[in-house]
């Protein structure tokens, strides 16, 4: 499979994603500069983390008008797999592929930590190698990961089973105590209604090899591969 990793000015997890896809997942992978506009060669797209355009105005607000983003929107509407990690998630929210918005962390601090996530849905292209209710450990590193949406949207996310990952305690407690940033309903990752676009604040590319201290992130990329191999693009 061929993965495309989009590079905006200020992306800084692009190399990590490329390394994981190429050297760990053994897939053909390449960078796509944000000025490009053709995604037809790719089986899946990764929007990596970082600080696109210095987070000016709002996180992701300027990146969403990069030429590549119209192509990403079309790609997603046609059912292509898109995963947005951290700043990638923020961009997906700004461009409207996912509902809601990000606010500053409740603590106002940039948080760099490893957190427990509960897998809420395993029946998705991004989590089929995980089990529902499973608790995984994935690093976070963000200042604006405090997910917000209105009540109606939250209801829809729940009804359509679009909440894929939530922050939780070691026993799976989804309480405020284990909510690092103040996210509504402890939301760490959501997908669109169709299920082919995922946004998540935690960084699976930082825990895809044992040498880095964990392999739970590997299972997210392995899920995407599994889905692509079974269903095709």
């Amino acid at each position: 499979m061929k993965f495309g990793i989009i590079v905006f000015p200020g992306s800084n997890c692009d190399a990590d994603c490329l390394h994981v896809m190429k050297n760990v997942m053994k897939q053909e992978s390449e960078y796509i500069w944000h000025q490009e506009s053709d995604l037809s060669a790719y089986d899946a797209i990764i929007l990596p983390g970082g600080f696109s355009y210095g987070d000016y105005l709002r996180t992701g607000a300027i990146a969403r008008f990069s030429p590549i983003m119209s192509a990403v929107v079309d790609y997603a509407r046609q059912g292509g797999l898109v995963i947005g990690i951290c700043n990638g998630f923020q961009i997906l929210l700004e461009v409207g592929l996912l509902p809601g918005a990000m606010l500053r962390n409740r603590s106002l601090k940039f948080i760099c930590d490893t957190v427990n996530l509960k897998v809420r849905q395993a029946n998705t292209p991004f989590s089929n190698k995980l089990e529902e209710g499973q608790i995984i450990q994935v690093p976070i590193a963000h200042g604006e990961g405090n997910y917000y949406c209105d009540e109606k949207t939250l209801q829809e996310l729940n009804d359509n089973k679009q909440i894929i990952f939530t922050y939780c305690g070691p026993e799976g407690e989804e309480s405020l105590e284990y909510n690092p940033n103040g996210s509504l309903a402890n939301i760490a990752g959501i997908c669109n209604e169709k299920g082919n676009v995922l946004g998540m604040m935690p960084h699976p590319e930082r825990c895809s090899e044992a040498v880095l201290g964990g392999t739970d992130g590997y299972k997210i990329f392995a899920s995407m591969l599994n889905y692509l191999e079974e269903v095709g693009r």
Binding site: L57, R58, A61, I62, F65, L93, E94, P99, G100, A101, L103, Y148, C149, D150
Partner: peptide
């Protein structure tokens, strides 16, 4: 379009 995010 850009200066404000109507969601928040």
């Amino acid at each position: 379009k850009l200066l404000a995010n109507p969601v928040i």
